[in-house]
Computed example of a mutant assay.
Amino acid sequence: MQIPKLQHTQSGNFFLIAGPCAIEGRDIALEIADKIKKITDRLEIPYIFKGSFRKANRTKLNSFTGIGDIAALEILKEVGDTFNLPTITDIHETEHAAMAAKYVDVLQIPAFLCRQTDLLVAAAETGKAVNVKKGQFLSGQAMHFAVEKIRSVGNNVVFLTDRGNSFGYSDLVVDFRNIPEMQANQVPVVMDCTHSLQQPNQSSGITGGKPALIETIAKAAIAVGADGLFIETHPRLSEAKSDAANMLPLDKLENLLEKLVKIRKAVVA
């Protein structure tokens, strides 16, 4: 992938998109990025720091949405500059594309918005890499059209992310056929190991999750041949302002990645 500052691309490893669900503040973002970079450098895993500058898709009206757009984007830029890391954030409206592109290296299209043509084209027109999350309501094959929209304006730096399929019963199911089906578009494919374990639309208004299965999803994805993994992580889940129920505790990330690197080596051997 032609993404600035993406290191270790010749290692043969999967790449990792990881960080907190949302940008909660400068210190916590720098803390997380520092710890993950040390791990990924040692394991030679290409790493992209992630964090949402705004959380637009919330169940409850009073859920945390962010610390302010520019404030959060400036923190993302500082993380990238401080650790020489590419950064990624999701956008929800066409006007967000040009704004966010000034601060990050990759623009992400949320799953619920993957069919929004104007949003996809606006992201592509910035010239930044674009990660499109597969809608929970779509097959892997249907994402061909999202790739076409990005490429229609001459942007070929695109990858796709699976995050499970929903059947409307406050749960998600991962169909690993989606990985090779999306790879048929000649693009890297990522498995979102944390959002795919969400249990949305709970009666409490707070999304639930099954974080104990993160390792299971990650291992299976690497075994199937996923090019990258997406993992939301936080050092203190009790303090996390978004998606605490399905994030991986940061102190468990290193051990998990060590196992996954071994699986990757076995798969490509």
Rank of each mutant, 00 (worst) to 15 (best):
L120N: 07
E93H: 13
V189H: 02
S52K: 09
F230C: 09
G66R: 05
E239L: 12
V153S: 04
H96L: 07
E125D: 14
L61G: 06
Y169D: 08
K38P: 02
K37Q: 11
V173M: 13
E95W: 13
S238H: 11
N62R: 13
V153C: 11
K262W: 15
P46G: 12
L250G: 08
V189T: 09
A18D: 01
R42A: 15
Q7W: 10
A218Y: 07
P180V: 12
K241H: 08
Q186Y: 04
N131T: 01
K265H: 03
V261T: 09
D27E: 08
F230W: 14
G66Y: 08
C114I: 14
T117H: 14
A212K: 14
I75H: 02
I3Q: 03
K37D: 03
T9E: 05
G68R: 03
G140I: 07
A129Y: 14
I28L: 06
I70W: 10
H8E: 08
P110W: 01
L43Y: 15
L107V: 11
K55P: 12
T117F: 13
E148D: 09
V268D: 04
L256K: 04
E74W: 04
K60A: 11
K55H: 12
M143D: 04
A244P: 13
T94I: 09
C21H: 05
V79Q: 11
S139I: 10
L253R: 00
L253D: 02
A223V: 04
R177A: 09
L138K: 11
L30P: 05
L16D: 00
D81R: 12
D90F: 06
P86Q: 00
E232P: 02
K259Q: 12
A142R: 08
A269V: 12
D175W: 01
Q116D: 15
L250I: 11
L260P: 02
L229S: 11
G205S: 11
N185C: 07
F83E: 02
A221T: 02
V267E: 12
V261A: 00
A122Q: 08
L260R: 00
